[in-house]
Protein backbone atom coordinates (compact mmCIF):
# COMPACT_ATOMS: atom_id res chain seq x y z
CA UNK A 1 0.00 0.00 0.00
CA UNK A 2 2.63 2.42 1.11
CA UNK A 3 4.99 1.18 -1.53
CA UNK A 4 2.36 1.62 -4.13
CA UNK A 5 1.75 5.17 -3.05
CA UNK A 6 5.42 5.91 -3.01
CA UNK A 7 5.86 4.49 -6.45
CA UNK A 8 2.96 6.48 -7.76
CA UNK A 9 4.32 9.58 -6.15
CA UNK A 10 7.76 8.85 -7.53
CA UNK A 11 6.43 8.36 -11.00
CA UNK A 12 4.36 11.48 -10.71
CA UNK A 13 7.38 13.42 -9.62
CA UNK A 14 9.30 12.08 -12.55
CA UNK A 15 6.51 13.17 -14.77
CA UNK A 16 5.90 16.28 -12.78
CA UNK A 17 7.24 18.80 -15.22
CA UNK A 18 3.78 19.89 -16.20
CA UNK A 19 1.58 17.30 -14.51
CA UNK A 20 0.26 18.81 -11.31
CA UNK A 21 -2.16 16.18 -10.10
CA UNK A 22 0.26 14.38 -7.74
CA UNK A 23 0.17 13.26 -4.12
CA UNK A 24 3.25 15.16 -3.16
CA UNK A 25 3.97 18.44 -4.82
CA UNK A 26 7.40 18.84 -6.32
CA UNK A 27 9.57 20.26 -3.59
CA UNK A 28 11.91 22.89 -4.94
CA UNK A 29 14.53 21.86 -2.36
CA UNK A 30 17.38 22.20 -4.79
CA UNK A 31 16.24 25.66 -5.78
CA UNK A 32 16.16 26.69 -2.13
CA UNK A 33 19.67 25.49 -1.51
CA UNK A 34 20.86 27.14 -4.69
CA UNK A 35 19.35 30.48 -3.78
CA UNK A 36 20.78 30.14 -0.30
CA UNK A 37 24.22 29.46 -1.72
CA UNK A 38 23.84 32.37 -4.16
CA UNK A 39 22.78 34.65 -1.37
CA UNK A 40 25.66 33.57 0.83
CA UNK A 41 28.09 33.97 -2.06
CA UNK A 42 27.07 37.54 -2.83
CA UNK A 43 26.55 38.64 0.77
CA UNK A 44 29.78 37.31 2.19
CA UNK A 45 31.83 37.88 -0.92
CA UNK A 46 34.41 39.94 0.93
CA UNK A 47 34.75 37.37 3.70
CA UNK A 48 35.25 34.56 1.22
CA UNK A 49 37.90 36.57 -0.61
CA UNK A 50 39.84 36.86 2.62
CA UNK A 51 39.36 33.17 3.45
CA UNK A 52 40.47 32.24 -0.03
CA UNK A 53 43.56 34.42 0.16
CA UNK A 54 44.55 32.93 3.51
CA UNK A 55 44.00 29.33 2.46
CA UNK A 56 45.76 29.85 -0.83
CA UNK A 57 48.69 31.43 0.97
CA UNK A 58 48.89 28.60 3.48
CA UNK A 59 48.62 25.97 0.78
CA UNK A 60 51.23 27.57 -1.46
CA UNK A 61 53.62 28.10 1.42
CA UNK A 62 53.46 24.56 2.75
CA UNK A 63 53.45 23.02 -0.70
CA UNK A 64 56.54 25.03 -1.55
CA UNK A 65 58.25 23.82 1.60
CA UNK A 66 57.49 20.19 0.74
CA UNK A 67 58.13 20.30 -3.00
CA UNK A 68 61.12 22.58 -3.32
CA UNK A 69 63.78 20.57 -1.49
CA UNK A 70 65.05 17.50 -3.32
CA UNK A 71 63.00 14.33 -2.85
CA UNK A 72 65.55 12.64 -0.63
CA UNK A 73 65.63 15.49 1.89
CA UNK A 74 61.86 15.64 2.38
CA UNK A 75 61.57 11.85 2.39
CA UNK A 76 64.27 11.58 5.06
CA UNK A 77 62.67 14.24 7.23
CA UNK A 78 59.26 12.55 7.03
CA UNK A 79 60.80 9.12 7.67
CA UNK A 80 62.62 10.55 10.66
CA UNK A 81 59.32 11.90 12.04
CA UNK A 82 57.80 8.46 11.59
CA UNK A 83 60.77 6.87 13.35
CA UNK A 84 60.49 9.30 16.26
CA UNK A 85 56.78 8.66 16.59
CA UNK A 86 56.68 4.92 16.15
CA UNK A 87 60.17 3.50 16.01
CA UNK A 88 62.78 2.82 13.36
CA UNK A 89 60.77 0.12 11.58
CA UNK A 90 58.12 2.59 10.52
CA UNK A 91 60.89 5.03 9.60
CA UNK A 92 62.48 2.54 7.22
CA UNK A 93 59.10 1.44 5.90
CA UNK A 94 58.11 5.02 5.19
CA UNK A 95 61.33 5.66 3.33
CA UNK A 96 60.72 2.62 1.12
CA UNK A 97 57.13 3.75 0.54
CA UNK A 98 58.24 7.23 -0.44
CA UNK A 99 60.78 5.76 -2.85
CA UNK A 100 57.98 3.79 -4.48
CA UNK A 101 55.90 6.95 -4.85
CA UNK A 102 58.84 8.79 -6.36
CA UNK A 103 59.52 5.83 -8.63
CA UNK A 104 55.99 6.09 -9.98
CA UNK A 105 56.64 9.76 -10.63
CA UNK A 106 53.93 10.85 -8.20
CA UNK A 107 56.12 12.57 -5.60
CA UNK A 108 55.04 16.13 -6.38
CA UNK A 109 51.39 15.10 -6.42
CA UNK A 110 51.84 13.26 -3.13
CA UNK A 111 53.36 16.34 -1.51
CA UNK A 112 50.51 18.50 -2.81
CA UNK A 113 48.04 16.02 -1.33
CA UNK A 114 49.94 15.93 1.95
CA UNK A 115 49.80 19.72 2.08
CA UNK A 116 46.07 19.64 1.49
CA UNK A 117 45.56 16.98 4.16
CA UNK A 118 47.65 18.84 6.72
CA UNK A 119 45.89 22.16 6.19
CA UNK A 120 42.38 20.70 5.98
CA UNK A 121 42.91 18.47 9.04
CA UNK A 122 44.37 21.31 11.06
CA UNK A 123 41.38 23.53 10.31
CA UNK A 124 38.92 20.70 10.88
CA UNK A 125 40.48 19.95 14.29
CA UNK A 126 40.59 23.61 15.24
CA UNK A 127 36.84 23.63 14.78
CA UNK A 128 36.02 20.09 15.86
CA UNK A 129 37.79 19.92 19.22
CA UNK A 130 36.24 23.06 20.74
CA UNK A 131 32.82 22.03 19.42
CA UNK A 132 33.36 18.56 20.87
CA UNK A 133 34.25 20.06 24.26
CA UNK A 134 31.18 22.24 24.10
CA UNK A 135 28.85 19.35 23.26
CA UNK A 136 30.43 17.18 25.95
CA UNK A 137 29.67 19.76 28.61
CA UNK A 138 26.27 20.82 27.41
CA UNK A 139 23.50 18.34 26.65
CA UNK A 140 21.48 20.89 24.72
CA UNK A 141 24.45 21.64 22.50
CA UNK A 142 24.96 17.95 22.01
CA UNK A 143 21.38 17.45 20.85
CA UNK A 144 21.68 20.45 18.57
CA UNK A 145 24.96 19.46 16.96
CA UNK A 146 24.30 15.76 16.49
CA UNK A 147 21.91 16.02 13.49
CA UNK A 148 24.24 18.53 11.86
CA UNK A 149 27.07 16.03 12.16
CA UNK A 150 24.85 13.26 10.79
CA UNK A 151 24.09 15.48 7.82
CA UNK A 152 27.74 16.31 7.24
CA UNK A 153 28.86 12.71 7.49
CA UNK A 154 26.23 11.10 5.30
CA UNK A 155 25.92 13.72 2.60
CA UNK A 156 27.81 12.33 -0.41
CA UNK A 157 31.20 13.96 -0.41
CA UNK A 158 30.92 15.11 -4.02
CA UNK A 159 28.00 17.33 -3.08
CA UNK A 160 30.16 19.54 -0.88
CA UNK A 161 32.29 20.34 -3.85
CA UNK A 162 29.46 22.13 -5.64
CA UNK A 163 28.93 25.07 -3.26
CA UNK A 164 32.67 25.12 -2.64
CA UNK A 165 33.23 25.60 -6.34
CA UNK A 166 30.47 28.20 -6.60
CA UNK A 167 32.05 30.18 -3.80
CA UNK A 168 35.77 29.59 -4.31
CA UNK A 169 35.92 28.58 -8.00
CA UNK A 170 38.48 25.87 -8.78
CA UNK A 171 41.85 24.98 -7.33
CA UNK A 172 43.11 24.00 -3.91
CA UNK A 173 40.79 26.22 -1.84
CA UNK A 174 37.41 24.57 -2.68
CA UNK A 175 39.20 21.25 -2.12
CA UNK A 176 40.31 22.32 1.34
CA UNK A 177 36.90 23.71 2.27
CA UNK A 178 35.02 20.63 1.12
CA UNK A 179 37.56 18.42 2.89
CA UNK A 180 37.20 20.35 6.15
CA UNK A 181 33.42 19.94 6.15
CA UNK A 182 33.65 16.28 5.22
CA UNK A 183 36.29 15.44 7.83
CA UNK A 184 34.92 17.51 10.69
CA UNK A 185 32.34 15.13 12.12
CA UNK A 186 34.53 12.40 13.63
CA UNK A 187 36.67 15.06 15.28
CA UNK A 188 33.64 16.42 17.12
CA UNK A 189 32.21 13.01 17.94
CA UNK A 190 35.42 11.52 19.30
CA UNK A 191 36.16 14.60 21.40
CA UNK A 192 32.68 14.55 22.91
CA UNK A 193 32.83 10.81 23.50
CA UNK A 194 36.28 11.02 25.04
CA UNK A 195 35.32 13.71 27.51
CA UNK A 196 32.02 12.09 28.42
CA UNK A 197 33.79 8.80 29.06
CA UNK A 198 36.14 10.27 31.64
CA UNK A 199 35.46 8.58 34.97
CA UNK A 200 32.83 10.73 36.68
CA UNK A 201 34.44 10.13 40.06
CA UNK A 202 37.72 11.67 38.95
CA UNK A 203 35.90 14.74 37.69
CA UNK A 204 34.06 14.84 41.00
CA UNK A 205 37.39 14.68 42.77
CA UNK A 206 38.43 17.79 40.87
CA UNK A 207 35.31 19.58 42.05
CA UNK A 208 35.62 18.20 45.56
CA UNK A 209 39.07 19.71 45.99
CA UNK A 210 37.86 23.08 44.76
CA UNK A 211 39.09 23.12 41.19
CA UNK A 212 37.44 25.39 38.66
CA UNK A 213 35.66 24.00 35.61
CA UNK A 214 38.36 25.27 33.27
CA UNK A 215 41.05 23.66 35.33
CA UNK A 216 39.18 20.38 35.50
CA UNK A 217 38.95 20.49 31.72
CA UNK A 218 42.68 21.11 31.31
CA UNK A 219 44.03 18.90 34.06
CA UNK A 220 41.56 16.06 34.14
CA UNK A 221 39.12 15.81 31.27
CA UNK A 222 41.36 16.58 28.31
CA UNK A 223 44.32 14.47 29.42
CA UNK A 224 42.09 11.52 30.23
CA UNK A 225 40.13 11.93 26.99
CA UNK A 226 43.31 12.30 24.96
CA UNK A 227 43.57 8.70 23.69
CA UNK A 228 40.02 8.95 22.33
CA UNK A 229 40.57 12.43 20.95
CA UNK A 230 43.71 11.21 19.19
CA UNK A 231 41.68 8.40 17.62
CA UNK A 232 39.42 11.19 16.34
CA UNK A 233 42.42 13.07 14.99
CA UNK A 234 43.46 9.93 13.16
CA UNK A 235 39.97 9.61 11.68
CA UNK A 236 39.93 13.24 10.60
CA UNK A 237 43.23 12.81 8.79
CA UNK A 238 42.14 9.61 7.09
CA UNK A 239 38.88 11.16 5.92
CA UNK A 240 40.78 14.20 4.67
CA UNK A 241 43.00 11.98 2.60
CA UNK A 242 40.05 10.16 1.08
CA UNK A 243 38.49 13.51 0.20
CA UNK A 244 41.68 14.72 -1.43
CA UNK A 245 41.16 12.42 -4.40
CA UNK A 246 37.60 13.60 -4.85
CA UNK A 247 38.81 17.19 -4.62
CA UNK A 248 40.92 16.44 -7.69
CA UNK A 249 37.67 16.73 -9.66
CA UNK A 250 37.54 20.47 -9.02
CA UNK A 251 41.13 20.93 -9.93
CA UNK A 252 42.69 20.63 -6.49
CA UNK A 253 46.32 19.72 -7.04
CA UNK A 254 47.62 16.40 -5.76
CA UNK A 255 47.07 12.68 -6.23
CA UNK A 256 43.48 13.34 -7.21
CA UNK A 257 44.72 14.70 -10.53
CA UNK A 258 46.14 11.46 -11.98
CA UNK A 259 43.18 9.49 -10.62
CA UNK A 260 40.56 11.78 -12.18
CA UNK A 261 42.55 12.02 -15.37
CA UNK A 262 42.91 8.24 -15.64
CA UNK A 263 39.17 7.88 -15.20
CA UNK A 264 38.42 10.12 -18.16
CA UNK A 265 40.95 8.29 -20.36
CA UNK A 266 40.41 4.80 -18.93
CA UNK A 267 44.13 4.79 -18.18
CA UNK A 268 44.56 1.82 -15.82
CA UNK A 269 48.30 2.35 -15.40
CA UNK A 270 48.03 5.98 -14.35
CA UNK A 271 45.00 5.31 -12.17
CA UNK A 272 46.75 2.64 -10.13
CA UNK A 273 49.94 4.65 -9.80
CA UNK A 274 47.96 7.52 -8.33
CA UNK A 275 45.79 5.23 -6.25
CA UNK A 276 48.70 3.23 -4.83
CA UNK A 277 50.45 6.46 -3.86
CA UNK A 278 47.34 7.41 -1.88
CA UNK A 279 47.50 4.08 -0.09
CA UNK A 280 51.15 4.57 0.89
CA UNK A 281 50.48 8.09 2.10
CA UNK A 282 47.47 6.86 4.05
CA UNK A 283 49.43 4.12 5.81
CA UNK A 284 52.17 6.60 6.69
CA UNK A 285 49.70 9.11 8.15
CA UNK A 286 47.70 6.47 9.97
CA UNK A 287 50.68 4.81 11.64
CA UNK A 288 52.23 8.08 12.67
CA UNK A 289 49.05 9.53 14.17
CA UNK A 290 48.05 6.34 15.96
CA UNK A 291 51.56 6.09 17.39
CA UNK A 292 51.18 9.65 18.66
CA UNK A 293 47.93 8.61 20.35
CA UNK A 294 49.79 5.91 22.25
CA UNK A 295 52.31 8.44 23.45
CA UNK A 296 49.83 10.55 25.41
CA UNK A 297 50.65 10.55 29.14
CA UNK A 298 47.48 8.73 30.11
CA UNK A 299 47.94 6.04 27.48
CA UNK A 300 51.52 5.58 28.62
CA UNK A 301 50.48 5.41 32.27
CA UNK A 302 47.92 2.74 31.50
CA UNK A 303 50.40 0.83 29.37
CA UNK A 304 52.79 0.76 32.33
CA UNK A 305 50.11 -0.97 34.36
CA UNK A 306 49.70 -3.86 31.98
CA UNK A 307 53.41 -4.19 31.36
Amino acid sequence: MITATATTAGQSVLAAADDTGTFVPRLPFGDWVESAVDWVTTTFDAVFDVVKAILEGAFDGLEWALQTPPFIVVALVLALLAALAAGWKLGVGSLVGFAVIAGMDQWDNAMASLTLVIIASAIALLIAIPVGIWTARNDHASRLVRPVLDFMQTMPAFVYLLPAVVIFLTGAVPGIVATVIFALAPGVRFTELGIRQVDAEIVEAGHAFGSTRGRILRQIQLPLAMPTIMAGVNQVIMLSLSMVVIAGMVGAPGLGQPVVESLSRIDVALGFEGGFSVVILAIFLDRVTSALAKRSPVAKALATASA
Binding site: D199, E201, I202, E204, A205, H207, A208, F209, G210, S211, T212, Q219, I220, P223, L224, P297, V298, K300, A301, L302
Partner: peptide, 21 residues
Protein backbone atom coordinates in the same frame (compact mmCIF):
# COMPACT_ATOMS: atom_id res chain seq x y z
CA UNK B 1 32.00 27.02 47.63
CA UNK B 2 35.31 26.35 45.88
CA UNK B 3 37.14 28.06 48.71
CA UNK B 4 35.32 25.86 51.23
CA UNK B 5 36.24 22.76 49.30
CA UNK B 6 39.85 23.82 49.22
CA UNK B 7 40.16 24.63 52.87
CA UNK B 8 37.41 22.94 54.86
CA UNK B 9 36.16 19.69 53.30
CA UNK B 10 38.06 17.03 51.44
CA UNK B 11 36.90 13.72 50.12
CA UNK B 12 38.03 10.12 49.62
CA UNK B 13 36.31 8.22 46.84
CA UNK B 14 35.13 4.66 46.47
CA UNK B 15 37.16 3.97 43.35
CA UNK B 16 40.03 6.18 44.45
CA UNK B 17 39.57 8.77 41.67
CA UNK B 18 43.28 9.27 41.17
CA UNK B 19 44.72 10.93 38.10
CA UNK B 20 46.27 8.01 36.21
CA UNK B 21 48.84 10.13 34.39
Amino acid sequence: LRALRRTRVSMVFQHFALLPH
